[in-house]
């Protein structure tokens, strides 16, 4: 929200009164009337789930309903924290988020700089069009593409491995390789699209700086190091902070499509576990408690990230 010239509001001079408040609502009755469907929608579909979330602290029985089920306090949270899968789930989730960020971000930055530096503008547009494409495809399509590349029978990668005399690897079902499949397929799908913010920041750098560097006889690499990189540091900081705030969102759709029983131990993240435990095993309260736990940590992390962003980059994340 940018600061614009606000109309002089009499709020400071007038004392707040209920009558005035209702009067002002009445003046805006059309606007409220207009928003009514959305407000009702919010009450049901956004706050309804929050109401249901109380079963995290109850022993939910479908027959008794959300209200009728007995309270059990933090029992489900204790069960989760003390369970053997707690560390695995948390490690997998954080591992995937961090690996995607640490390996994906430098590549995106290098791509953005390459696109920015190239003289062949037509070719640049073409490359951009192609590398943005995977972002718009669903993970189901990506799964199909990955099967064609990775299947042990005649996948492209395994064909190459066999050419060099190696044994085919069942990438999608092998616990030793599944993590890399998750990380690299995400990088393959999203790196192109994530160049867009860096590229925008690069294009916003004043051309005067580059001209001055040319006059001073800077080499291309010096130019990138001393002008381009400093120019996109704010974006890098913001993207990193935002990703840190969402570190527990490791990509549910992706893992849900790609994983299978043999790789649960290395692929299971909080979200996929919640789905299986809740929807498939009917452990509604335990699954809700875990989802709630994730939600609270997520909220705290994003608020912290936002504070840092405000202080460091003078920008708000939301």
């Amino acid at each position: 929200m940018t600061l614009k010239t606000l109309p002089p509001i009499s709020r400071s001079t007038e004392k707040f009164s209920l009558k005035n408040f209702f009067h002002s609502i009445w003046r805006q009755r059309w606007l409220y009337f207009l928003m009514m469907p959305t407000l009702i929608y919010f009450a049901i579909f956004k706050y309804g789930p929050l109401w249901n979330a109380q079963i995290a602290f109850k022993d939910f029985k479908p027959l008794l309903g959300v209200m009728g089920s007995p309270w059990v306090g933090f029992q489900h949270f204790e069960t989760f924290v003390n369970s053997f899968y707690f560390t695995d789930l948390l490690t997998n989730t954080v591992f995937f988020s961090l690996a995607k960020l640490i390996l994906g971000m430098p590549l995106a930055i290098v791509c953005a700089i390459a696109l920015h530096e190239t003289w062949f503008l037509r070719y640049r547009t073409f490359v951009q069009t192609v590398i943005y494409l995977p972002h718009f495809l669903s993970w189901v399509i990506m799964f199909g593409v990955l099967l064609v590349i990775l299947s042990p029978g005649n996948g492209l990668l395994n064909a190459i491995i066999e050419q060099f005399g190696g044994d085919p690897i069942p990438f999608l079902t092998s616990p030793n390789h599944f993590r890399w499949v998750v990380i690299f397929s995400d990088i393959w799908k999203e790196t192109g699209w994530s160049t867009i913010l860096y590229l925008a920041a690069l294009l916003a750098i004043s051309p005067d700086l580059y001209e001055a560097a040319a006059v001073d006889g800077a080499t291309p690499l010096q130019r990138i190091w001393h002008i381009s990189i400093p120019g996109i540091i704010p974006v890098i900081v913001l993207v990193t902070l935002l990703r840190m705030g969402n570190i527990l969102d490791a990509g549910f759709n992706q893992i849900f499509v790609l994983y299978s029983v043999p790789v649960y131990s290395v692929g299971d993240i909080i979200d996929t576990w919640v789905y299986r435990q809740g929807v498939l095993q009917f452990q509604f309260s335990l699954a809700t408690a875990v989802g709630f736990f994730k939600g609270v940590i997520g909220l705290v992390l994003i608020l912290i990230s936002n504070q840092i962003a405000k202080r460091v980059a003078q920008q708000s994340l939301f």
């Binding site: 249901n52 939600g295 939301f318």
Partner: peptide
């Protein structure tokens, strides 16, 4: 900013 996850909405 706060989502209680899949089960409550389910």
């Amino acid at each position: 900013l706060f989502s209680p996850g899949l089960i409550p909405i389910y």
